[in-house]
Design a protein around this nucleic acid. Structure first.
Lengths: 144, 144
DNA sequence: CGCAATTGGTGGGTAAAAGTGGGTTTTTGT
DNA sequence: ACAAAAACCCACTTTTACCCACCAATTGCG
């Protein structure tokens, strides 16, 4: 289970050093893709496969589902960590998520999210600004 | 499985260099055709055959299916990559998809989609603009 | 408690491969 | 037979992958 947020800095070539403590769990083969909220998703390669399979089973003529396919599968890239445990983020994905130097790596259990630091702060602010957080219906009666 | 997006540039002769990492899987014989959403589809030739067969099995009196047949089969072209791994896009298909210089090649598992960069951005924006993305009904309870 | 050794992070340099742009020849269609 | 277009080939430029070296931080040991 991936947990915790880390502030990483991407070098000029677009390489990101994955924190050493997570390397073993990620293995060297990972998949990096785009998320509709504007961040990237990082999965260990084996964990990604079933998700992609499920996505591609949807109709490719339906606007809604083909849009998701284009985003999630279209942007997905197989990446191998280099000998120093870094992953190379392609220009396309960098542009998609607006990544420059400062990147937030956010553990989300089965995977990580990668945010441009500014975008991360923004979405955090908008969550907290509301004052009251309305719980999704599924969490009725649930408390932390 | 084809994944990932690449920003390609078509030269003045209408040639497109397929990324080297995908050439082996595509082989040299490919089929390029039109998709109702305004992009082109690129299949390895062997993978295309059964799809075409399936299309042509539909009734040609039904408006909906004969329309699809005209588009998918009518626009389909057999193309061979040249020695440098480039494919030549015919003027007809270029015009159909509005391709000029900047082209997005989008992996979709069994095949690729080819978009005029502007059109790609547009459809991406309209997907993400809603803020909330409703999941297709088939994905009820599915999470990334 | 301090020093040394090891591990993690960072930044390039370089050789090989991929991408790009024509020029020339061959084919095709009129 | 001629013009236009496509196929082929070659040379140049750019990018990428791989490697190595250095700096920082942390840990272990004397």
């Amino acid at each position: 289970m991936f947990r915790g947020t880390t502030n990483l800095s991407m070098d000029v070539k677009g390489r990101l050093a994955v924190p050493a403590k997570h390397r073993e769990a990620l293995q060297t083969k990972v998949v990096l893709t785009a998320h509709p909220h504007g961040c990237l998703l990082l999965y260990p390669q084996p964990a990604w496969e079933p998700i992609e399979a499920k996505m591609m089973a949807l109709s490719s003529f339906d606007k809604q589902s083909s849009g998701l396919q284009r985003l999630l599968v279209g942007y997905a890239e197989d990446i191998e960590l280099d000998s120093a445990g870094r992953l190379l983020v392609s220009p396309t994905l960098r542009e998609f998520a607006g990544l420059e130097k400062e990147v937030m790596l956010v553990g989300q259990g089965s995977h990580f999210e990668m945010w441009h630091l500014e975008a991360w702060r923004k979405q955090l602010d908008s969550l907290m600004a509301g004052g009251d957080i309305e719980m999704p219906a599924e969490l009725e009666g649930f408390s932390l």
